Structure formats: C-alpha cells, structure tokens
Simulated scan of single mutants.
Amino acid sequence: MATSMRRTLVSLRSVTCSSLKSAQVPLDVRHPVPLYLPVRTKKRYFIPPAVNIKGKKEENPELKARAAGVVIRQQYLERPINIACTAGVFDPYIPPEGDSRLSTLSKEGLRQRTEQIRQSAASQLAIRKIKEHDSEFTTKTFAEQAQEIFIEAHNSLTQFNKERLHSLVTERCYPEMTRGNRYKTIRWTFVESLEPPRVVHARCPDMVTKGNLYGQVTVRMHSKQTLAIYDRFGRLMLGSEEQPKDILEYLVIERHLINPYGRWRLHGKIVPSWAPAKDPIIQTVAIPGPKLKPWEDLESLNYEVPKPAAVQWYK
C-alpha cells in the first residue's frame, strides 16, 4: 500500500515538473512567440455603398429606409402665396412711344388709336366693377390720391419706417423698394407736379377663385423730383440733392376689393421700352498710395496719383 502511494506521488511530481517546464517556454526570450494571432471573424454580409460603386446602379434610398422601418417625411414642392395682393401687373399699360399722340393718317398712328380705344373700353368695364365694391372711387379724385400715396411711401422709405411703408405698398412692391438699401442713405424730395396726374388704365383681375377681385389702376404722373443716394461711407453714389429732374412715371395702384378693410396701395411701376437709361452708379474705389510713417502726412509729401498708361486694344 505504501509502495503504491509512493509511486503515485513520484508520478504526480514528474507531471507537475513537466507542466512547469512547458509553461516557462512562452516566457523564454530566446524563443519568441507572436502576441497577436490571426483569428477569423464572422463573414461580412454588408458592403458600404462607396465600395465598387462604378458600373452599378444606385439603389433607391427610400425603399431601403422603408425596409428598415424608417419613415421619411414627404417633401412638398408647393410655394405659399399671399392673397392680399397679386403677384404682378395684370395686362400692363403700354404707353405710346415718346408719350405723344401720332397722327391717325399714318399707319402707326392708326394702330395706336385702335389700341387706345380697345384699352379704354376694357378700362371702363373694370372701373364699373371697382365702383361696385368702392362707391367713393372716381377717376378725377383718385389720381391725386395716388400721388399722395406715392409721396408718403417714398418719405417712409427715406426714414426707414417699415410699419408705415407696409401700409402704403403691397407685399410685392415692398422688397423691390427696400432691396439693397441696408447700408445706404437716401435723400428724396418731391419738388412739384409739372402736369396734373390722371388715370390712364384700369383692370379688375381675379385670383385663386372667380369672385376674388383685385383693382389695378395705372396713373400717369409727370413731376420734378430730387434723389441722392449715399453709401455707408457718406460718399455720393447716385443723383444730387440740389439738381431736380423731370420724371415721367406710370404708377400701378392696387386694392383687394373683396376685403372690406382693404386700401389702395402702391403695387409697382411700368417702365416703357423707350424710357431713357438710368444714370450710372458712382462707385468708391480705394487708390493705393505710399506707405506713411506715423509722423508723416500725405499732404506734406506732395504725392501725385499715378494715371494708368494708355493701352491699345486690338480686335
């Protein structure tokens, strides 16, 4: 019994010694073993769309999103509209060339006369519709009222009174009057009226529905005005405050007739094709000069601005 126990102890001792020797093998510096062993992972079932995309058709992302359970919000391409005013001038008035009446004996004069008769007939029908909704409307007094609206709107523009300007011009005319005036100073005055204003055109269009009527009246106004625009540095860009100019304008005044609280407002201007071109804008340009030291002055140096050399341009 004792001999068998001794044999088992000897065998266990030999096994433990051999296991310890094998455990010391990886730690031996003389026999290095790689610390990271390549291990095969799961197979890659999803390939990013950027890989091997050439020569393949792109899949619909909406179908993928629906399959994944993601709800994509529908995009509406509709544009909101404002029914307080129309989007433009309906059947605009075409002023005769030079604002003069040609002889009916000529071909152009006869065509001009027939066009005036056609437009005046349509204007009379529109004035009847306007009087049905606005009993105080008359062509004699309305021209002076339109001129007052024009003067007050431009005075509000020079004073940057947005609340007052919104009540005098339509939502279509407001951005056209205020665009690009953020860092500018405007000086405008109405000197006098050279000719009494008069109504030359009237239309009564409808929008969205048949009974939603709008009144558009075109007023001819010939006056003397002054306009001066200064940039943010206070330099003159356009016009003059001292030199008035004779200006012939065709103003379009509009009102939403169905609205009981509607009022006549400035809607736009009609610029004829024969009108003279506008004056060019004087731009402020920085001319490079000499580099001055802190104790030097430009006037004391008598520096002359160099003029550009003449260049011959060949076609």
Score class of each variant (00 low, 15 high):
N212T: 02
L301G: 05
G268R: 05
S223Y: 03
K315D: 14
I130L: 10
W313S: 11
G234I: 05
W188M: 03
I149H: 05
P260Y: 04
R255F: 04
E136A: 13
N60S: 12
Y36P: 00
V219C: 14
I127C: 00
D206S: 09
E249W: 01
K245E: 14
R220C: 08
E249A: 14
P197K: 07
G239I: 02
A84I: 01
N155Q: 05
L35A: 15
I287Q: 08
D99K: 13
S14P: 06
A143C: 04
H133W: 05
R128A: 14
G98D: 14
A121V: 11
T3V: 13
L63A: 11
E304V: 12
I247H: 09
R118S: 14
R263A: 15
L77D: 05
Q225P: 05
S11A: 15
W313H: 14
R30N: 15
P96N: 15
R263H: 09
A121L: 11
R7V: 01
K307D: 10
R164V: 05
R220I: 02
G211C: 13
T86G: 12
E136P: 03
V169D: 03
R6I: 13
S4N: 10
A50L: 11
V208G: 03
V200K: 06
N259F: 03
C17D: 15
V51F: 02
V199P: 02
S123I: 02
E171C: 13
N82W: 03
N60A: 06
L125K: 08
W274M: 12
I253A: 00
S223D: 11
L301M: 06
L37Y: 07
R265W: 09
E249I: 15
W295P: 07
E152A: 09
K291I: 04
K210G: 05
E171G: 07
V29F: 12
P280D: 14
A126P: 05
L168Q: 01
G289K: 10
C17T: 13
F160M: 08
L292M: 01
L238N: 07
A228F: 07
G239Y: 04
E59Q: 10
E62D: 11
T104K: 13
R203T: 00
P308T: 11
E148Q: 14
P61M: 11
L35Y: 12
F150D: 06
V285K: 07
K162Q: 07
Q24P: 04
I47V: 02
A122W: 01
Q24Y: 10
N60P: 03
V208H: 00
K307I: 07
L301Q: 07
A153K: 00
F142G: 06
R73L: 13
V15L: 14
Q24R: 09
Q145K: 08
Q75R: 10
K307G: 11
I270A: 07
Q243G: 07
L77P: 06
V169Y: 02
M207W: 08
T209P: 01
I53Q: 11
Y230P: 06
R44V: 13
V169C: 10
R172N: 04
I270F: 05
I53C: 12
A50T: 14
F190A: 04
S273A: 09
R118V: 10
L266M: 11
R30W: 13
H222V: 10
W188T: 01
P34W: 01
P290G: 01
